[in-house]
Design a protein around this nucleic acid. Sequence first.
DNA 1: CCGCGCCGCTTTGTCAGACATAATAGCGCC
DNA 2: GGCGCTATTATGTCTGACAAAGCGGCGCGG
Lengths: 255, 255
Amino acid sequence: MTVKPLSAGLNVRAGRKTLRIPGVIARDIGLQIVSGHYRPGEVLNGEIETSGRLHVSRAAYREAVRILAAKGLVKALRKVGTRVTPREEWHLLDPDVMGWIFEFEPDDATLASLFELRRMVEPEAAALAAARRGEEDLAAMAGALKGMARYGLESKAGRAADQAFHAALLRATGNAFVASLIAGVGAAVTWTTFYKGTHSRQLRDSLPDHQRVYDAIAGQDPSGAREAMTELVDLALRDTTDARKRIGRKKRATP
Amino acid sequence: MTVKPLSAGLNVRAGRKTLRIPGVIARDIGLQIVSGHYRPGEVLNGEIETSGRLHVSRAAYREAVRILAAKGLVKALRKVGTRVTPREEWHLLDPDVMGWIFEFEPDDATLASLFELRRMVEPEAAALAAARRGEEDLAAMAGALKGMARYGLESKAGRAADQAFHAALLRATGNAFVASLIAGVGAAVTWTTFYKGTHSRQLRDSLPDHQRVYDAIAGQDPSGAREAMTELVDLALRDTTDARKRIGRKKRATP
DNA sequence: CCGCGCCGCTTTGTCAGACATAATAGCGCC
DNA sequence: GGCGCTATTATGTCTGACAAAGCGGCGCGG
């Protein structure tokens, strides 16, 4: 899938199935903001101008801007225009924002920060999951593991299974706030496996790591789960950074 | 400040300064959703009907719905209506959603979950802050401490200072994702101090806890900071739950 | 010359009414 | 009884108009 963020030639009405016009526009502008094409403080073009250029009504465009404002990316001021918000005010953990960020190749700092957060949350989450998991949680994780084994991390299905494993684990904590980090973790997971699958000659098999986490959770062993997950995250980070160092940087890429 | 979520008699055009009509409506409906007045799966009334009842244009109402959809609270489907999303899909870490949740008295499970998350993140955040803090970070935290000491946790200013301390600490981590948890932590902090200040006879002074965290960060002592913060969060949780047990439950309250 | 306040213009904010479109439910036909 | 068509009814989108709120410039006065 190719990202096409240059709204100059964006045809909003092209074959869209589920996403409405405002959604398409919001995504487009959102991508440009998180990718740095629009920078904080910069003001977007006027509503009449932009909506005209995109051949959509002003109302539809305004709804798009509202979506972005709801995610903290922009702020509209009368007379002055719609201005891109400073980065600290962005709702970075919003699933859409997170997705937009990771449609481009994130820079090292971003990726490192995300792994730092995973490193804080996931080990404890694994411990909680070990204490609280129900049978359905185990089934979901087991199913994901099976999927990883079956399709491998090079395939889309395999990566989806990897994400599903972590999602099921976070859900198993029974903590709604923790569970709402799924989008963020998923983004990191995708990038990890994407890198390994694409650039690394011998991609280290992370399935055993996952299996150990699963076993500890299944065995209701919180501290074991914590340790196993700590190692998993550390190894995933190492794999990712190694791969990036080895192959240098591309301008952008799409998993 | 009193929350007034019953949109039946909501006068959207009453003295609003900064918040536009869609914002007011979004907040109103958002409050009703997170408070359980509208339940997941339930469909909101039609756009024409509701916008008419509120005496606002359909466009304005639609923008409000878009805001809620951007936060994962609702999902609009043609012909079927705008339906409240299942709770797992809510963007709970969104600052607005978080704020709406904590405008009512959160139930025990919610508060416990939030403290669980703090317990995962803040100790490590303190450790990171100890390693990376700059002079401005220290100054911000020191200022917040001074504010806490000066105004006390019973006052609004004091609680704001408490929040500011935690916000400055999260910012000092240099991790943007961690920093975007400020809203969540702030909500928990407010409720902690609110409870203690309102209901507890002798409110335990948490200033020394904060001071120890600060000292460790100032002294660039990561593990010390981690320990101090762990204790701070544990004590805060204990204070809060103790206070709640002691006084039983009120239907709702507003800090 | 400098400062202060008024005025107008630009941009977002809101409104009204119309038509488009899709998904459901119910009807009718096989 | 099952299948497909159609009418209904939501949201989706468009158009064009007016309201109002800041910023900037202009002019007056010190």
